[in-house]
Amino acid sequence: MYSYSDFDEAFVRSRVAQFTDQVARRLDGSLSEDEFRPLRLMNGLYLQLHAYMLRVAIPYGTLSPRQMRQLAFIADTWDKGYGHFTTRQNIQFNWPKLPDAPAILGALADVEMHAIQTSGNTVRNVTADHFAGATADEIDDPRPYAELLRQWSTDHPEFQFLPRKFKIAITGSPVTAP
């Protein structure tokens, strides 16, 4: 599968550092909730009914075993031992605490994952058919195109404040996987 370039790595690390600082400033009162809310949402951290929720992008639904183990580690260390896979091929942790969010994002960055653009009026995680590269009736593997779109849309300066969220789906097969 695709591995981060140096550029991807540096970008994700810089966002973790930035968010670590933002959480610290929220907790010491130098950022108000109105100021902080858009910043946490840019990093996939929602405040839900009973707790915070962190939505982590799984680009076009593809994971390595190492990444899956790291999700398990995060679930055990900072959540309640489980994760919820969503209808957009992402994973949500339902019980993170705000002071732990930077450490969780750091643990995700260790395995080339992040929660960027999982919220807000941006291009969200590109979805692809989950049988890509394996199914018999495929014309071409959609994942390289999905990865190209991911790289292009991540932090794209023109498309960080779209009128509304924007979702792209790509399939390499004219027929939908069952």
């Binding site: 907790l27 009914l49 707790a51 605490k97 705000l98």
Partner: peptide
């Protein structure tokens, strides 16, 4: 409300 740190109701 929700607690700032834990999110608890």
């Amino acid at each position: 409300a929700n607690r700032l740190q834990e999110g608890d109701v």
